[in-house]
Simulated scan of single mutants.
Amino acid sequence: MGFFPPFEPSTPQQGTQAFQPPSSPPPQFIPQQTQATSFAVNPGAIHGCLFRFTYIWQRNGEQYWFVPVFVGSRSVSGFRWTGRQWIFFGVDTRQIISFSCF
């Protein structure tokens, strides 16, 4: 299966890169959770999910579709699906126990 990004970054403005939310909702399925990690998610691992639909499972029990646009040393930010719309959102990688990207 090929990779088709759900959206493209918009034109950078004044030295910063602005991103638009995906133009379509996420897939209608919930993937099966992979093995949970004991420690923080490795930012290098989630970096491979940039601009892709990604399902996140958090330590607090929350789970949701997410499209990461930035991965830092201890956080990831992007667009989270609320069930009706995409909102900009960030999460500490130490709070993510598992993720799966498509």
Rank of each mutant, 00 (worst) to 15 (best):
M1V: 11
G2I: 08
P5G: 06
P5E: 06
P6E: 01
P6A: 07
P6R: 03
E8Q: 14
E8H: 13
P9A: 13
P9I: 04
S10R: 12
T11L: 15
P12S: 12
P12Q: 11
Q13E: 15
Q14C: 05
G15S: 09
G15W: 07
G15D: 09
Q17L: 11
Q17S: 10
A18D: 11
P21I: 02
P21T: 02
P21N: 03
P22I: 06
S23F: 07
S24D: 13
P25G: 09
P25L: 04
P26W: 05
P27Y: 05
P27L: 07
P27W: 02
Q28E: 14
F29E: 00
F29C: 00
I30P: 02
P31K: 01
Q32S: 12
Q33E: 07
Q33N: 04
Q33H: 02
T34C: 14
T34F: 11
Q35K: 14
A36Q: 14
A36K: 13
A36V: 06
T37L: 13
S38D: 10
S38I: 13
V41P: 00
N42M: 03
P43T: 09
G44C: 03
A45I: 09
C49T: 02
L50D: 01
F51D: 05
F51C: 07
F51E: 10
F51H: 05
R52P: 04
F53Q: 01
F53K: 01
T54P: 03
Y55A: 00
N60M: 09
G61A: 12
G61S: 13
G61N: 13
E62T: 03
Q63L: 07
P68T: 04
V69N: 10
V69S: 07
V69G: 02
V69C: 11
V71R: 01
V71G: 02
V71L: 10
G72S: 14
S73W: 09
S73Q: 13
R74N: 14
V76W: 00
V76N: 04
S77A: 14
F79V: 04
F79Q: 00
R80P: 02
W81C: 00
T82W: 06
T82M: 05
T82P: 01
G83E: 06
G83Q: 08
G83I: 07
G83S: 09
R84M: 08
R84W: 09
R84G: 09
R84Q: 12
Q85N: 12
W86R: 01
W86A: 00
I87A: 09
F89S: 12
G90Y: 10
V91T: 13
D92H: 11
D92Y: 07
T93M: 15
R94V: 12
R94W: 12
Q95P: 04
I96W: 04
I96N: 05
I97T: 12
S98C: 15
S98Q: 15
S98M: 10
S98A: 15
F99Q: 00
F99I: 11
S100L: 08
S100V: 02
S100M: 08
C101D: 02
